[in-house]
Amino acid sequence: MEYNNVLVEIEDKVALVTINRPKQLNALNAETISELSNCFETLEQNKSVRAILLTGSGEKSFVAGADIKEFASFGKEQGAELSRRGHNQLFNKVENLTKPVIALINGFALGGGLELAMSCHYRFASENAKLGLPEVGLGVIPGYGGTQRLPQLVGKGRAMEMIFTAKMVSAKEACEMGLVNDVVAPDDLLELGKKSAKAITRNSGNAIAEAIKAVNAGYEFQNHGLEKEIEHFGNCFGTPEFKEGTGAFLEKRKPNFD
């Protein structure tokens, strides 16, 4: 299938999926989420693929977040549906894919971008990467699994600090807190990903699929948390602070939440 925003290359049992919206810093709009969903479904069924690498095009960004202009006018019910659709269409699908998905974070991974990276089974980053969940600066909360997956990876305290302050962390800091597995120079990132994926392909695909299911079973409690995230994400929509935060972002000014 041809995609407008996604590139796919397959070589030696490894698929390289590249989100290709460099002018928008690879931001996730509805079309891109739909294309990624279809892409992962197709690769799941492709018997010649044993591991998947996910990255962003260009040198600046993995995924700089969601496309704010698509939902700035949404109300509470539309906001909740946006979150639920994203969970079902892409983020939960990636997490539960029976073929390992490795995120190669080659720059900014912010908001939905970091949430997508956290849905992958593990992550590598380039030295120039910056990671964060800046949603509270828009008057909303992370709505694609960030409130659940970030605490699993870095612990409750660090996760709350990142979410409440909306701060970005460097690749080095992300590695130290367990958010990414390793950090390398930008030119070495793809090679590291391919080396790791190649090691996967030498092992039993069936055993790895069962291992993914077994590991994920230990976190099934998060399903309740994801439902609460959808609810509280939706609650933020239509509030004066959401309108101020998204308006300020689109107008390229600082929000005023006083």
Rank of each mutant, 00 (worst) to 15 (best):
G75M: 02
S48L: 09
Q45T: 14
N29F: 01
R158E: 15
G178K: 05
F257L: 03
H121L: 07
A27T: 07
L7T: 12
T18I: 06
L16Y: 00
T55D: 00
N256S: 12
Y3P: 13
C236R: 13
K93G: 08
G178W: 08
E127K: 07
G247S: 09
Q148N: 11
V8Q: 07
E9I: 00
R253S: 09
G193I: 01
A214T: 13
G58Q: 07
V14Y: 02
S170H: 08
Q89E: 15
E9A: 14
G145I: 03
L16D: 05
N106V: 03
L150H: 10
F257G: 05
E251D: 15
E229W: 01
K76T: 06
A185N: 05
L189T: 01
G146K: 07
A66E: 15
A159T: 13
E11T: 10
L250I: 11
K130E: 14
A174W: 02
V17E: 08
L153E: 11
E127D: 08
A174P: 00
I33L: 09
V17I: 05
G225M: 04
E191P: 01
G245N: 10
R158W: 03
A214S: 12
L97D: 03
A80I: 10
E227Q: 13
K156G: 01
P142V: 00
